[in-house]
Design a protein around this nucleic acid. Structure first.
Lengths: 187, 187
DNA sequence: AAGACGATGTCAGTGGCTGTCATCACTATA
DNA sequence: TATAGTGATGACAGCCACTGACATCGTCTT
């Protein structure tokens, strides 16, 4: 047996979710999270950059999946379609709607957490724009396609969470893309 | 003569801009800002909710102008065009490009400030979506038009700041809207 | 067996932010 | 003209997020 209990990071994550859920994010101190995980406050900050980051640990995975989907799209595919395809791919990563709902409830209840979510999405947009540029897509086109892609994702994700049936995220993405076409101002 | 020097809020704002510019945001303490303004740290927090907010004081004005422009658009105008028109209106509020550049340089140099900027833009998107809904625009359409509007604004604003000539912001907005039409995936 | 390594603990310190109470010029009202 | 507010500020104590520095001690290498 090792000197320490295994999976310190996982225990911290679970403790954080529990406490944020029980008392709310603001009413929870990092020391409390660490204590429930059988660790010290200092160790929490060795695993997570700050008190918020524990809720956003999966975002690198999401971003990587996203970027790969864009890069792997066939040469011939238009930028917007590459992004749309990538958006639908992400639907596969986020299967557990109830878990997403729970997490989103925490995030929406607190402005700091909302800020962190937004910067993650912005970072995602930047990464997608870079991926498009690496495909030879011009600057303005790449930025705009990425930003609009995020706009669609935000709206579709929200509607997916609010939905009652068991439609998958990809379906909402398609719906929003269709609406986007209708919304886009005509020349 | 009053008991105190006039315009405490303005002095705090100026001191903050100076110090953030001289040493950077992180290297500046609120106590230093207050001292330069001839006040105490406690008073700073009576005028601004936190250390970042001093750089975002004008955002309510911008948001109000934006929302009014959407609301005041003629009944007949399509949602997207109402938003586009509002975007161009904002160009009038942000005339001083050099000042905007300086502020943006500060914001981009610091993740916390970037987070705050993003939540202000998100709040703007929400307000615009609400304004559209008050015009009878359906939910999905309103959300999407507002989000896409912000996407266009982000890209156009960035390009305006990066630009060398003396084009106005509205020109970049028009350019980006045109590109948006080209980017939007066809049915 | 000795030493390097790595995850954790301990502790002191900084700085953002808040609650509370005191101060005191100005203002309204008796 | 006295008196009782009022409102912006100061003073002070305290919480908590976060950091740097050093100690600890199983485990792994050689």
């Amino acid at each position: 047996m090792g000197r320490w209990q295994p999976n310190a990071r996982g225990r911290l994550t679970q403790a954080a979710y529990e406490l944020y859920g029980e008392r709310g994010y603001e009413q929870t101190t990092v020391a409390e999270i660490a204590k429930r995980a059988g660790l010290t406050e200092r160790t929490f900050f060795r695993h997570f950059a700050d008190k918020r980051e524990v809720l956003f640990a999966g975002s690198e995975v999401l971003q990587e999946a996203f970027v790969n989907a864009v890069i792997d799209a066939p040469e011939s595919v238009a930028p917007a379609d590459a992004v749309t395809a990538a958006l639908e791919t992400v639907g596969a990563v986020l299967q557990d709607r109830e878990l997403s709902r729970q997490r989103q409830r925490l995030i929406e209840a607190n402005a700091e957490l909302r800020e962190r979510e937004l910067i993650k999405l912005a970072s995602l947009a930047t990464a997608i724009a870079d991926a498009l540029r690496s495909r030879g897509v011009p600057d303005l086109t790449a930025s705009l396609a990425a930003e609009v892609g995020m706009a669609v994702f935000k709206v579709a994700f929200q509607r997916w969470l609010d939905g009652t049936g068991d439609e998958d995220l990809a379906g909402y993405v398609r719906e929003s893309v269709a609406e986007l076409k209708a919304v886009t101002p005509d020349a």
